[in-house]
Design a protein around this nucleic acid. Structure first.
Lengths: 343, 343
DNA sequence: ACGACGACTGGAACCGGTTCCAGCGTGTTT
DNA sequence: AAACACGCTGGAACCGGTTCCAGTCGTCGT
């Protein structure tokens, strides 16, 4: 391995001059600078990252802690974080917590010693533990908000409004909500938004309860929705919505005709099913990118590194596909097919 | 930030003793050791990672380079890599190349300076460039093999055999293959396996050509398959297979009745569609874990760190679902529905 | 009781860079 | 022509650990 010392000696200059030349600091003559740079390239010099970190105190690394890398929601955020980090000269260390709150705390604590800043994605962590960890001022939350902690989240209330407006415009009066886990900050936000849309009359949404945020949770919710006589189901996320679609199909109910279904997130699979899923698209990759920016400019950042607000709330967009359609007229109200087909 | 020096002073011992006590090396009295450990805990001492790296030469970090983090195939490998790395006391730096061969080369070169070893996932890179990069002996390939480079791959020929046996057992004689990109090592492997299964007679598989490994590629392949009179389609991967399913549905052909479809990978979406997709499941997370093990034992590894063979070929398993069924009898051969429905 | 041996301890070198500071040379000012 | 300022240069300190090596102390054997 070739060190800076060797480059300096080969170029006939001192260690100090070589260092300045390569990190293009001032106080080096143009001739020397070019000579050192060329010598370094010829020798195949690569700066030793740990050594640089030791003196400068900057690791040029951001951490990313998330519940499940294989979940497309978090994977997309991760892609955004990685892309923006690289553009600004930083690497990304990822830590997958396997949806475990205890691991989450440990991982964050451990990583904080190795990175300049940390992106914490949808933490399961209780609010007080969050506050303690983030006191360092080097943590940004994604998809969650907490007092005093910078964060990037989504304008979920507006997404809920768009979805409900869409369904009401189609004539749906019996709209049901298939919720996510009670402990989830995101679910609470959706419910609050739904309550705010309540006009006190017949257009109150039907609460189907709390479900696991998975395909299976949706299967479970679908039967409850049919039993409650809902003509439209708004789901906690796309996985739940896909479960609802599958179960409706199995029971002989035509999704997008008899019953409309709306999801949340716009995961890739939403376009792969039939009928394609109407869903509220969240700018996930953008959130990852913005989170990195909130951690401050990286080594490669230009001078235009604008200081950002501590909280960002990104706009969301309802994507209308085939799973929503005008409400059936009363006479043709949906009824479960007597021949129930189990997949 | 509290340093080892401060711990040593607070505990009334020398720097050397404190270091030995905390890294439980020998030559420290039991009393001193415990005292130092307690003092360190009280002061909230966290070892400085870069400083340790500088002297020991070990970064306790593995790199992971892959084409697309948001692709569930690679995301699952990443999850395996991350899990195994943590179990052995290492962190993971991920680099997403956006499917770009040039970036791939640059990322690997850059990362090699910051990690102990590197997992390179399905590289687009040409074989010679690969050989040069991996000369360092610190790279493991996943889902690709190259002479002289350790790798973890899948027993794709056996998977192809299982799929074709399955289809032939169902009575399919006209089996078509919807291939992936010509430059893909994986596609070449599938084709070689298919050729080997050729019995020289009527059971020759129909080559539909090369398609982009996406949903859209499958849509394109589906029409060709119908035109060729195939009753079964084996696809390069699940995304292509899902595209075939969608297009068949749109054309009024019943997948799993009129035409059977088999995919590769067993991505989560395979179970979410109707009919659910029969596919060759690859142990992706396992591959990630094994790749980390091939890089050598980490800091936390026990003494049982078995030295592994340089190449591992993991077994694969055909998962039969609803998208495959007995071949229709001649008289009811599939024909495109005259009313073509475009989604 | 004396010498040898071994366990423990601490001073100091070292890893590979960055940066402070003093010194030097040249060009400019008075 | 002398004094001054400024830009460039190199020696050396430093970042926070690990580890070599020499030294000290206590203990055991004879």
């Amino acid at each position: 391995m070739v060190t800076l010392r060797e480059v300096a000696r080969a170029a006939g200059v001192s260690l100090a001059t070589a260092s300045r030349a390569l990190s293009d600091a001032p106080h080096v003559s143009a001739g020397n600078r070019e000579h050192v740079v060329r010598t370094a390239r010829e020798l195949g010099y690569r700066p030793h990252h740990a050594a640089r970190t030791l003196t400068t105190g900057s690791t040029a690394t951001v951490g990313l802690v998330l519940p499940d890398l294989a979940n497309p929601f978090f994977a997309t955020v991760a892609k955004g974080v990685q892309g923006r980090a690289r553009e600004t000269g930083r690497e990304v260390i990822v830590a997958d917590t396997d949806e475990d709150a205890a691991q989450e705390h440990e991982q964050v604590a451990r990583l904080l010693g190795r990175v300049d800043g940390l992106v914490l994605c949808s933490p399961r962590m209780p609010a007080d533990a969050l506050a303690a960890l983030t006191a360092t001022g080097r943590v940004v939350l994604v998809n969650r908000e907490a007092p005093g902690v910078p964060s990037v989240s989504f304008d979920v209330p507006d997404g809920v409004r768009q979805a409900v407006d869409h369904l009401r415009a189609l004539g749906h009066e019996a709209v049901a909500y298939a919720g996510g886990p009670r402990s989830s900050w995101s679910d609470a936000e959706r419910r609050t938004a739904l309550d705010a849309l309540d006009d006190g009359g017949a257009r109150r949404t039907i609460d189907l309860g709390a479900f696991r945020p998975t395909h299976g949770g949706g299967v479970q919710a679908a039967d409850l929705a049919l039993a409650a006589g809902a003509t439209a189901v708004l789901c906690f996320n796309d996985l739940v919505a896909l479960g609802v679609l599958a179960r409706l199909h199995a029971r002989g109910v035509r999704a997008g005709r008899d019953v409309s279904v709306v999801g949340f997130d716009d995961v890739p699979a939403a376009t792969l099913v039939t009928p394609a899923l109407t869903t509220v698209a969240l700018p996930l990759a953008r959130a990852g990118r913005d989170a990195v920016d909130l951690l401050g400019p990286g080594p490669d950042a230009g001078s235009d590194a604008g200081l950002a607000a501590a909280h960002r709330r990104l706009p969301v967009e309802l994507v209308v596909r085939a799973s929503t359609a005008p409400a059936p007229s009363r006479s043709t109200a949906p009824a479960a097919d007597p021949e129930v087909v189990i997949r």
